[in-house]
Design a protein around this nucleic acid. Structure first.
Lengths: 209, 209
DNA sequence: AATGCCGCTGACCAATCGATCAGTCAGCCT
DNA sequence: AGGCTGACTGATCGATTGGTCAGCGGCATT
């Protein structure tokens, strides 16, 4: 029926322009006129294809979400020693963030802004799989199984993602902080984070008070 | 000269209303009319006191920054054993975030949005002192001094701040993730993060490849 | 050739945006 | 009393916002 041949039809150009602009400046700071201008289209055409500004935003958001989970999944499968598997996971998550920055900022802004209502949907439909996969990775590697007192795998996933997300969003600031040179040496950063995660897994933890 | 007695003059009410709204929804999503309404004032009066929307935003931002650094400084001084000092630091940083959420979101949004131009100013004038203090804390506690191969103190500061900031911004999502119950048990969260940081300091790290 | 559909456009809408204006009112100084 | 300052307001500005609508040209079907 339709021609799937021409990959760049008008609607797609609009989608991509909107993704860039929404990612850079957020929902409210971007106007339909801006998007139309960047896409080389007209305002009316945007409403013809998407109906409203909100609908366009959600379309862009959903596309960004789908794409990012694909990338993350690829970076996860590897049968190596624990240190290398952790490195792989760190690098994979980092790649997702840095290779499509606008998309990543779009998603994180949504997470920040979303109230309790949408948060559960985001957790289940968007981040659940990736987080579970990462948690399972740490559970697999854990030397003595889940001895009580040890840091649980899901928290190690939290540490990994937190550090990466922070590096991504703040690296322009971090690199000017005293001792923040790691923000510009990605390989060095990866090894340090790997060491933090590895030693947290190995150590028998004290659980005083 | 001026009366320092009346603590809530008009300008201050505007400032506080603006801080709340900017923190909740960001700069572009908030209009002067909203702020005037919330402050029980008039649009024109806002321009009378602050000159422009941007000037009001910066005034609010600066006030938020000053207040947060004060709180952080208090939480830092304590002469206890390493585990307790780290706990103290985690709790202090967490308090800064959660006890004035709008202010915290205001600042973080500024960090996210700022290009390379303003990032350096933010690093030096706003976050430099706190980050340095936190780094020094880890350097003091470090058992064998700075043996090479160990995770540097500034990176431990990165881990601490990253995890806290992520917990703050995403805890509505995290608590719905499998294994994300820690997002609602703050004391448990603090102890886990403390263990991660402690074991990262103690362990002689491998620096292969 | 007439048809209907679809991608697309310029002109236009009411509402709202940030900002300015002249002007009011209360307090303070001389 | 009179002059002056500063907090404050309602009305209003031009520009821009998200959104609508009638209509255009190309293309496939009948």
């Amino acid at each position: 029926m339709e021609a799937a041949t021409q990959a760049f039809d008008g609607a797609d150009k609009i989608r991509r322009a909107a993704a860039d602009l929404f990612g850079e400046r957020g929902f409210d700071a971007v106007s339909i006129a801006h998007i139309a201008d960047r896409a080389g289209s007209s305002k009316a055409n945007i409403f013809h294809h998407f109906g409203s500004k909100e609908a366009l935003y959600f379309a862009v958001l959903r596309e960004a979400v789908d794409r990012s989970t694909d990338h993350f999944r690829d970076a996860m499968r590897a049968e190596l020693d624990p240190a290398q598997r952790i490195e792989r996971a760190i690098r994979g998550s980092l790649t997702v963030l840095f290779e499509d920055p606008e998309r990543a900022r779009l998603i994180f802004r949504e997470v920040m802004e979303s109230g309790p209502c949408r948060a559960e949907a985001l957790a289940n439909e968007v981040f659940g799989d990736d987080f579970t996969a990462l948690t399972r990775l740490f559970a697999d590697i854990q030397p003595g199984g889940e001895t009580d007192g040890a840091v649980p795998p899901s928290f190690l996933a939290h540490v990994l993602l937190s550090c990466n997300v922070m590096l991504f969003h703040c690296h322009q600031v971090l690199r000017h902080l005293p001792g923040g040179e790691y923000a510009e040496q990605q390989e060095h950063y990866i090894k340090m984070l790997r060491d933090v995660l590895l030693s947290s897994m190995r150590a028998k933890q004290e659980t005083n008070a």
